[in-house]
């Protein structure tokens, strides 16, 4: 009787779905949900509008005389990315797990034949897709504006910027998800990432500025400390990739060029990769132990 029922049951003839299949399924679900969500639409609109503003203004101020304004346009877009993208990625990550847990969705999802790592990675991939969509739409329209206004901007610079912005977004998404698995409530998670955003965007830089003046920080220490902030790394990497030089950043930039030369790309890549991999690994470790309820 027992064996009969088990063997006739279709479930046993079907293999357990692989990790990739489950990640893809969860990612697709998450992506669809993110694209429909208010935060995504809001951030995308804000990013796109501000980006268009930056491109239009910088293209207009260079107009007529055919000014070569590549540097300022890129700088404006870098500035915009620094402000908007971390906030967007952090808050997307922060609400992902925490709000699901709050709504009871997480327990229901984990009661299915999926592993927790699959759910976490699926969410990560899905949200990364949403962020990619936001960035490419914003920067794509900016590029169109630049082309329309006859701006003397290299296409490689724009594509590089998009790629690096996405890398930064991945890192911030990682941090956001770590906060999300740690926080008890979604509101706490969102509050925490806003604080983290403030630290990355303003507090750490201002502190480092103050420290440089007050403690007379040597230039090598200043540069190394600035590498701790992923936003600074993104900024320096974008400038370095666009101009093949960091000299615009003054003595510290020149120091970095002379000291590390072509290895700078590797250093920047390593820093940003660490911001992607480490928080996500930690998040996975915490998520595996935490109750989903």
């Amino acid at each position: 009787m027992t064996t009969l029922t088990l063997t006739t049951s279709p479930i046993l003839t079907r293999p357990v779905p692989g990790a990739l299949a489950n990640i893809a399924a969860v990612a697709g679900r998450e992506l669809r949900d993110a694209l429909r969500s208010r935060w995504f639409i809001l951030y995308t609109l804000a990013f796109t509008a501000l980006g268009l503003g930056v491109s239009y203004v910088s293209a207009a101020s260079s107009g007529g005389a055919g000014l070569s304004n590549f540097g300022r346009t890129t700088a404006g877009l870098i500035n915009l990315v620094l402000l908007v993208v971390p906030l967007m990625a952090l808050s997307a990550g922060a609400s992902s797990v925490a709000s699901d847990r709050e709504r009871g969705m997480l327990a229901y999802l984990l009661a299915q034949p999926v592993s927790r790592l699959e759910v976490l990675l699926g969410k990560y991939v899905g949200l990364a897709g949403a962020l990619l969509a936001c960035l490419t739409l914003g920067l794509g329209l900016c590029t169109a504006i630049l082309a329309w206004k006859g701006q003397d901007t290299g296409v490689a610079a724009v594509l590089t910027l998009a790629g690096l912005a996405f890398t930064l977004a991945l890192g911030m998404l990682s941090v956001g998800m770590l906060v999300s698995v740690l926080a008890r409530r979604a509101s706490v998670a969102v509050g925490t990432v806003i604080f983290i955003w403030l630290v990355f965007v303003f507090v750490s830089d201002l502190a480092l500025m103050a420290g440089t003046i007050a403690l007379r920080l040597p230039i090598d220490q200043l540069f190394l400390l600035s590498l701790l902030n992923p936003l600074q790394v993104f900024k320096m990497w974008s400038l370095h990739a666009g101009d093949a030089s960091l000299d615009v950043l003054g003595p510290a930039g020149l120091y970095a060029m002379e000291e590390y030369g072509p290895r700078l790309h590797l250093i920047f890549a390593a820093c940003l990769s660490a911001w992607i991999v480490l928080p996500l690994t930690l998040a996975a470790a915490v998520f595996a132990r935490r109750s989903p309820l």
């Binding site: 009661a111 299915q112 999926v114 592993s115």
Partner: peptide, 16 residues
């Protein structure tokens, strides 16, 4: 994962 393949679960309230 394999164990849950054998289960169908209905919660108190569907939250999704």
């Amino acid at each position: 994962k394999a164990a849950r393949m054998l289960l169908g679960y209905v919660p108190q309230e569907l939250g999704f």
